[in-house]
Design a protein around this nucleic acid. Structure first.
Lengths: 232, 232
DNA sequence: GGTTGACTCGTACGTCGTACGATGCGATCA
DNA sequence: TGATCGCATCGTACGACGTACGAGTCAACC
């Protein structure tokens, strides 16, 4: 009943990896696998957004029947979880050389985090409702370790981690949700100018249109880091 | 075709507000209205969560047919938008007396914001995908005005607003998503202790269990405010 | 040859959002 | 008084969804 999942198919790919599976290759599609499902789900989410992912469409893209997916994943929720976590993999600092000090490391990690999510805007709107996958936990772990090494006391560690995490999450989600619909944005600003007697200040600052998102992100992050570790 | 919406029903309630509508009252349910629909949607969302809100269930609660709702709202998306915005109404500082200085005002506004959303945890997971309603804009406007009055230069205003907004959003969404499922949380921490060689630091700090959310929120907010207006 | 277990998929059920058109009903006009 | 008209309600129906169920295929082993 629940005796399926990854164990099964990974065994299969070991068995058939080297031996006489030329027949498999000659078919139009490679065999289903959890990895292929997740990768295709990410493609579909990138192309069509959260509402565009359905089991039938996903199966179509994979060249299989809809019900075949359920051998490899438990349900649609799991597809979301896996797609989200797969997108949040952290490959570590590519060029560790250019980074000096713990503060540089933290900034790099958090900016990479933000960039990863903005590359797949659906991830930002998905994350608030999903469980913590291994890749997210790995990122949290690295963040804690770096802060801990930097001398943040254990008592303050959780405050520091959550402050930084919260900040990154908020900035990313806000940015991504505005990215999703430029027209929405313009419409909102237009609604604003129509009601400029109601919202004079944000209308004057063109808050919704002219903001320098990246600049605001790193400035705010700096302030936070100043406060969290005033020593350095 | 599109000639319905609020104008129609508000005219109706004006007409029937005083006159001979005792018959309406004697019926088991008051007449449908946009306000009643939104209020009931909030109830339903509070009780059943985001997935629990369907047009049929909503209509059941209102004692009407499902299709009747569509006279007052355009579609289900609009119900979400209206419910979200209605929950984010800002009633202003209830006791302005106790609040000293712009900084106190800002903290009060942001804490009220957070509290409003945590009172309805679904709002946090909904917001990333929705448009900016009038109540959200009003909050942004008040925030800008306060900061502006506090002497933040126009050039820095957007940075300040977005830094604060992002921080509050992130903290609230994170907190709310953990609140939604304590069991998920415990399961995650359990998964962690099982893999404590993978995630030693966050396992040791009991990050997912023991965090002082409220304390972390206000400490991080203080740091941010320190940085944004170092003058005061 | 028979059995087993991994894997695929067609069919079917219940639920969803909502298009469409019929209906009821108070107000207005003839 | 009856005819007409706008607002408001709702029954029916359609297509799409997630997925339960069980029958099917095929390679590997006894």
């Amino acid at each position: 009943m629940a005796a399926k999942r990854s164990g099964a198919q990974s065994k299969r790919s070991q068995r058939t990896g080297v031996s006489p599976q030329a027949a498999q290759e000659s078919r139009s599609e490679p065999p289903l696998s959890r990895e292929r499902i997740v990768a295709t789900a990410v493609e579909l989410l990138d192309a069509e957004g959260v509402d565009g992912l359905t089991m039938r469409r996903l199966a179509d893209r994979l060249g299989s029947g809809a019900m075949s997916l359920y051998w490899h994943v438990g349900n649609k929720e799991e597809v979301f979880d896996l797609a989200l976590d797969s997108v949040l993999e952290y490959r570590g600092p590519q060029q560790m050389a250019g980074i000096q000090g713990w503060r540089g490391e933290v900034v790099h990690m958090l900016e990479d985090w933000r960039a990863s999510m903005l590359r797949h805007p659906w991830s930002a709107s998905l994350l608030p409702r999903r469980a913590l996958g291994p890749n997210i936990l790995r990122r949290l772990e690295m963040l804690s370790k770096t802060l801990s090494r930097a001398g943040v006391a254990d008592a303050d560690l959780n405050v520091a981690i959550w402050s930084l995490w919260n900040y990154v999450m908020g900035a990313t989600i806000t940015r991504a949700s505005f990215d999703l619909s430029d027209d929405e944005m313009v419409a909102a600003q237009h609604r604003l100018t129509g009601l400029s007697e109601c919202y004079p200040t944000i209308e004057r600052s063109r808050l919704l249109l002219d903001s320098d998102w990246d600049g605001a992100f790193s400035k705010g992050l700096d302030f936070l880091l100043d406060g969290l570790a005033p020593g350095q």
